[in-house]
């Protein structure tokens, strides 16, 4: 909150202005808060209640509070543990390549060159597709018997026999992650590119005069300057990636043998196959807690108090 108080102080707004604007503030926030409360928090609240009930479609006529029973049942399932571990892999190995490649792309696009506009328009396009569709498309391409990716790799003599992308548990995880990386690089690239362009050129010129080489510039100027963006973007992505069942759902549906289930697909399965809303809600509550703890830890670890803003 430090920056905030500073800017307010800079503006030198007298304190009475603040109370004077009470109504204005209230009215401006009202639509957003009202809508979010009614259509996001109210259903969430109801959903969290379900986590403590035997809310199953099999028999809705007899719904009771059953304490932590849903949590106990869910956590005892081997599928839950596997999804939890997979979630870490999924988030970590999706995030790192997205970040690194996105960063490099952004660095390379920082300076204007001919055709940059068209190039940008093209590389933005994965962002224009839905997760469900991306899953389907990659399933189409990764098919072990007649998929185009295997065919390409074979033709380029990179492999001797078709890779069982979707039938081998390890490859399946690699496959969903590659698809997710493909989808997510764009977001990083846009955010980082934007941050890079906000760096004043004078900073680089000064560094050049000091004789700093590219790598030194990168670590001394570029990265520190865009640090806030990197931190916020990364946190957002972690949350979004964990909460992103669409792609896995349509690419592998969690299989084979649950090897690509993450918490959010595990939860989806509880609803669609098990029709057990109570247990699904319990998984959801666990996810929210995990993300909350992670966010707090992350904010503390990066000592980035502004991250609390998002």
């Amino acid at each position: 909150m430090k920056t905030q108080t500073e800017t307010v102080a800079e503006r030198g707004l007298p304190s009475f202005l603040i109370s004077k604007h009470g109504l204005f503030i209230f009215l401006c926030l009202l639509p957003a808060l009202l809508l979010v409360t009614v259509f996001i928090y109210y259903p969430l609240f109801k959903g969290v209640i379900m986590a403590f009930q035997n809310y199953s479609l099999f028999d809705l006529t007899n719904i009771n509070f059953i304490g932590l029973e849903n949590f106990k049942t869910v956590m005892a399932e081997s599928g839950f543990k596997e999804s939890l571990i997979n979630s870490f892999y999924w988030v970590f190995f999706s995030l790192i390549p997205q970040f690194v490649i996105g960063f490099i792309v952004a660095l390379l696009l920082r300076r204007k060159f001919r055709g940059r506009g068209i190039y940008q328009a093209f590389i933005f396009f994965p962002w224009a597709m839905s997760g469900f569709l991306i899953g389907l498309i990659w399933r189409w391409m990764l098919n072990g018997q007649s998929g185009v990716i295997n065919d390409l790799l074979l033709k380029l003599h990179l492999i001797d026999s078709a890779i069982p992308f979707l039938s081998d548990p390890n490859w399946a995880m690699v496959s969903v992650i590659v698809a997710n990386v493909w989808y997510g690089i764009t977001f990083f690239a846009i955010m980082i590119l934007a941050a890079l362009q906000s760096i004043p050129d004078e900073l680089f010129e000064a560094a050049k005069i000091d004789g700093a080489n590219y790598v030194q510039q990168l670590f001394k100027i570029t990265i520190p300057y865009i640090m806030p963006t990197l931190i916020v973007t990364t946190l957002l992505r972690v949350i979004w990636i964990l909460n992103f069942p669409d792609l896995i759902y349509s690419l592998t549906n969690g299989g084979p043998a649950g090897s690509t289930h993450i918490l959010s697909t595990f939860m989806l399965e509880k609803i669609i196959f098990g029709q057990n809303y109570g247990q699904a809600a319990a998984v959801g509550v666990i996810m929210i807690f995990l993300l909350l703890f992670f966010s707090i830890f992350y904010v503390l670890a990066t000592k980035f108090n502004k991250a609390g803003d998002f």
Binding site: S56, F58, D59, G79, D168, P169, G255, P256, A257, G258, E269, F273, G274, Q275, N276
Partner: peptide
């Protein structure tokens, strides 16, 4: 049976695990 739906989703995973030799 209440558990039939649950069995089907469990068995689906077990079948794949069986096929993979896991």
């Amino acid at each position: 049976y209440k558990g039939y739906a649950e069995y089907r989703s469990l068995a689906e995973k077990d079948i794949q695990a069986l096929l993979l030799g896991k």
